[in-house]
């Protein structure tokens, strides 16, 4: 892990996270209507963003794996799914913490909540598949297909659930084209927080892929060793 890129990413994550925390807790003004709980939004939205990013990487890396057949793409796709699951869970948790004082309930079947929950289930089934399977080429291909199909499904999930019901606040753009964030300082905080989460995501992804690569190497070495022992025993 003592690799300049990894160290650089770690440093960038620490710096940007500290900056984001400072802005969220000290710099940004408290929202007039919702009060202090609105500050969780500066973590909530970046989590949602990286969860979606993770989903995109799962599909993209899955496609590259099917196309090029190199194990590194499979590792990338697996790592992105794990991180995506983590951040998708955080989205649901932070959302619930916010919803309780504002909407009066922990959970409601609003369109974006439902969409996120279905995405969470998709990640869950992907990870269950990987957990149940042996680490073979076959399952990597299957997982790639599942990842691609999952991402293809997202637009239809969004449309169907939106038609089903919605009460989620329009944060970035309302139907009239207005901002949900009135103060410029709020926009700045959101942007810094988004950057911090993105860098952190890349760093975690980098480390996780490195670990998976090591695991693949160990499996291969073990197999070679076993074969060699077998050959010697026969001699």
């Amino acid at each position: 892990m003592k690799n300049p890129i990894s160290i650089g990413l770690a440093a960038a994550t620490c710096l940007s996270m500290v900056a984001a925390l400072f802005m969220v807790f000290v710099y940004v003004p408290t929202e007039a209507e919702q009060g202090i709980v609105q500050r969780i939004f500066y973590f909530h939205l970046p989590c949602a963003w990286v969860a979606f990013l993770g989903f995109g990487i799962v599909a993209l890396a899955g496609g590259l794996y099917l196309w090029l057949g190199h194990k590194v793409w499979d590792d990338l796709s697996y790592a992105a799914a794990e991180l995506g699951m983590l951040f998708c869970t955080l989205v649901l948790v932070t959302g619930s913490i916010w919803a309780k004082p504002i909407w009066g309930v922990w959970w409601t079947w609003d369109s974006r909540l439902t969409t996120t929950f279905i995405l969470w289930l998709l990640y869950g089934s992907y990870l269950l598949l990987r957990a149940f399977a042996d680490d073979t080429d076959g399952i990597a291909r299957f997982a790639a297909v599942l990842g691609i199909v999952g991402v293809l499904d997202i637009p239809i999930i969004i449309i169907s659930v939106r038609l089903w019901r919605t009460i989620h606040p329009a944060v970035l753009l309302t139907r009239q084209g207005e901002h949900g964030l009135q103060d410029l300082r709020m926009v700045a905080t959101l942007l810094v927080s988004l950057a911090a989460f993105t860098i952190m995501f890349v760093w975690l992804l980098w480390m996780r892929v490195a670990t998976l690569r090591l695991r693949t190497r160990i499996v291969r070495l073990r197999r070679t060793l076993a074969l060699r022992e077998l050959a010697e025993a026969h001699r």
């Binding site: 998709l122 089934s125 992907y126 499904d153 659930v161 038609l163």
Partner: peptide, 16 residues
């Protein structure tokens, strides 16, 4: 495992 994978994917069609 099949229903576990199919149900979330099929969710939009299920709603519709």
């Amino acid at each position: 495992l099949l229903p576990v994978m199919v149900v979330p994917l099929f969710a939009p069609a299920l709603i519709a």
